[in-house]
Amino acid sequence: MTNILEVKNLQARIAGNTILNGLDLTVRAGEVHAIMGPNGSGKSTLAQVIAGHADYEVLGGSVTYMGKDLLELEPEERAREGVFLGFQYPVEIPGVNNAYLLKAAVNAKRRHNGQEEIDAFEFLKIARERMALLGMDASFLNRGVNEGFSGGEKKRNEILQMAMLEPTLAILDETDSGLDIDALKAVANGVNALRDPERAIVLVTHYQRLLDYIEPDHVHVLSKGKIIRSGDKTLALELENRGYEWVQEAASA
């Protein structure tokens, strides 16, 4: 199986605080990984560093994506190469039309891959299909990006973007936070529909709840900027029962 993502000894900081302290992670094609851990353990930092947020400074280590040095690429280049970050807090951008952004994103990737731009008719057809799968009303296309969306609507919109962009590597940062059960199921449906032997998905989550609906192949526990334990889906259940302290104590013992 191809390695889609290889993170080695990654160290990163933001605003002078070192958050990642030598993180290692390998994700292969077709796999779904869950990264769990208490607040402040570095889950979101990992996601932001992979997406290329300029506020995060990489101090050492490497991130290789499909054999390329990911850290060398601008955020937009990463996206066009097939990296997608589902934001924990999607930004509201009033005045930028949701459909416009979706189409511009799809076409940026297509141009990058030497493909023709999508025609308006086909775009609408695909967008409507994927929205139906996510239980989103088609009217969301004509609204400002995330403008006035509820928490659940924002997360569905992230998954819609992912479904349109068909990434090779999707990192979903706390996509389950703040969702009611219907929204959680809809989001999980969307993610499961994208499971593919050519694609890898990394779920960053605080709770095991999401994993009832999206079954991971691997579960990792992140603490103080390092992965301290890895296992299969049973590890998530154990964490749910015993809490994070148990792994932290075991790791430091």
Binding site: G52, E76, A79, I93, A104, A105, A108
Partner: peptide, 17 residues
């Protein structure tokens, strides 16, 4: 950053905003 993370280059993102 949000727009760039969706593949829009810096100039396009600035123009759009």
């Amino acid at each position: 950053f949000y727009l760039r993370s969706r593949g829009l280059d810096q100039d396009t993102a600035r123009h759009l905003l």
